[in-house]
């Protein structure tokens, strides 16, 4: 379970960043990345966070993962407050991004073992989980090769194994299919569904409409740091006044004037 209550987050801008934002920018030294955001993700369902680039999706997910701290509001992940018990939160989550986040000089076996060690998983428990993940993802044939020599599809498989080695209650996917080929993307989509079917709490961010249609149980649309739609995906579809999900999304975020 994830509960996000009235969360806001702003970032201090450097002079260079202010200059880069152009003369029209009048927001002072700070930029409001997330503003008064609330939502709830329940176990056994896929919660989709949809929004254009710069909407604040990654900031929200990083706050769920305790990488960033919110300025105000409250976030509860798997029953633990992200500000008060960040260590407990981190032990309950798995985090997967489009950039695989792997060490090129390690082998898949060493990479997964490293994270298993950090999660305190060892002995038979580790061996059993590793074997099942390596079989499922067909990692065994390249488990002893250096990650730097693997294809992007192979790397993403290793990344998935790293994310799930501790069997997390909550799985966070931050634009997990960005830059991946069709086959690898399909594997990720299957993985997200599998996580839901296992009763995990799943949140994933995307700006790809096809993925929204294939995966979403609940949907939140973000734009400029605010949530402008938050309900079930079915309600979104039934309330649509446009022909496609993409057209409806563009209409909601005001992309076409």
């Amino acid at each position: 379970m994830i509960e996000v209550e009235r969360v806001s987050k702003r970032f201090r801008l450097s002079r260079k960043q202010r200059r880069e934002m152009g003369e029209d920018y009048s927001g002072g030294k700070f930029i409001q990345s997330v503003s008064d955001v609330s939502f709830k993700c329940t176990p056994g369902k896929i919660f989709t966070l949809l929004g254009p680039n710069g909407a604040g999706k990654t900031t929200i997910l990083r706050m769920l993962g305790t990488i960033l701290k919110q300025d105000s509001g409250k976030i509860i992940v798997a029953g633990f407050d992200t500000l008060k018990e960040p260590d407990m939160v981190r032990s309950k989550i798995g985090f997967l991004t489009g950039t695989t986040g792997l060490y090129a000089r390690l082998t898949p076996e060493e990479m997964v073992k490293y994270y298993a060690n950090l999660y305190g998983i060892s002995g038979k428990k580790y061996t059993a989980k590793r074997d099942s993940l390596f079989d499922l993802l067909e990692i065994n044939k390249f488990k002893d090769r250096r990650i730097g020599k693997l294809s992007s599809g192979m790397k993403q498989k290793v990344s998935i194994a790293r994310t799930l080695i501790h069997d997390p209650e909550v799985v966070i996917f931050d634009e997990p299919t960005v830059g991946l080929d069709v086959i690898t993307s399909r594997n990720i989509i299957k993985l997200i569904r599998d996580c839901r079917d296992e009763g995990k709490t799943v949140i994933f961010s995307t700006h790809i409409m096809g993925e929204v249609n294939m995966l979403s149980d609940d949907l939140a649309i973000m734009d400029r740091g605010k949530i402008i739609f938050n309900d079930t995906f079915n309600k979104f579809k039934t309330g649509m006044t446009s022909a496609t999900i993409e057209d409806e999304f563009v209409k909601i975020v005001g992309g076409e004037k």
Binding site: R62, T66, D87, F95, T97, G101, L102, L118, Y119, R162
Partner: peptide, 10 residues
């Protein structure tokens, strides 16, 4: 991009 995954570890 490995810093992010390391930061969400325990």
């Amino acid at each position: 991009g490995t810093i992010e995954t390391l930061l969400v570890s325990p």
